[in-house]
Design a protein around this nucleic acid. Structure first.
Length: 202
DNA sequence: ATGACGATTTACT
DNA sequence: GTAAATCGTCATA
């Protein structure tokens, strides 16, 4: 049983956290007790008030994005496109609204339940969590988990994998997806993934 | 009160 | 590659 990531793991620069989260295990205990888990293989960093792509750009603070303003280690789950949820891991300290979007997982526990949650009978594992909304659907993550403190929660947390089985050189970078409105921030290399994973998005 | 818009996914041409 | 699905959220009034 791996140790849970402590507060200090999350209270870091979002770019550092985005890279550190690769290879770690996201765990969701479903309402019926089923353990759903996957290794994080793709992330994006959102840099807060200066970042045009971030929900907190310009210091925007609303009911929707309130969780981004909380202490590192909280979950920020939002609803978009009228039908999808996406999940972020909040970085740094309270009142510093930066976060890391989880874009893809390699499923490792509760795969049958994930396939059921996704309505993806007969489809390969690589289709279950290969996108930010797909992984939320697979792990039954919705707005009821917005604002959860992952350092304390029994429903949603990160287990630290001590020996990540990929070299640092395997971390690839590229522009973030779906932020065409973000002007000069569009091309910044703030997306990170494990090269050759087979479980990344697209 | 209203209108425009998504940090997406899926199916179809 | 293009388009539809679908509605909470937020800025404007």
């Amino acid at each position: 049983m791996s140790p849970r990531a402590p507060r200090s793991f999350f209270r870091r620069d979002p770019v550092v956290l985005a890279r550190a989260l690769l290879g770690q295990r996201l765990v969701r205990i479903a309402d019926d007790g089923t353990r759903l888990a996957g290794i994080i293989v793709e992330t994006e960093a959102y840099l807060g008030e200066l970042d045009r792509a971030a929900h907190t750009f310009g210091g925007r603070r609303t009911q929707r994005n309130a969780s981004m303003w909380r202490d590192g280690g909280h979950a920020y789950v939002y609803f978009t496109y009228g039908m999808h949820y996406c999940m972020n891991v909040v970085a740094e300290l309270a009142e510093k609204p930066t976060a890391v979007l989880l874009r893809a997982l390699e499923p490792v526990e509760g795969i049958d339940a994930m396939r059921r949650n996704r309505g993806a009978a007969g489809r390969p594992d690589s289709h279950l969590c290969s996108g930010p909304a797909k992984l939320c659907q697979a792990l039954a993550i919705d707005r009821s988990l917005d604002g959860v403190d992952m350092v304390e929660s029994e429903m949603l947390f990160i287990e630290q994998v001590r020996c990540r089985n990929f070299p640092k050189t395997a971390i690839m970078t590229g522009p973030r997806i779906g932020i065409g409105y973000a002007q000069e921030w569009i091309h910044k290399p703030l997306r990170f993934w494990i090269g050759g994973s087979g479980h990344v998005s697209r």
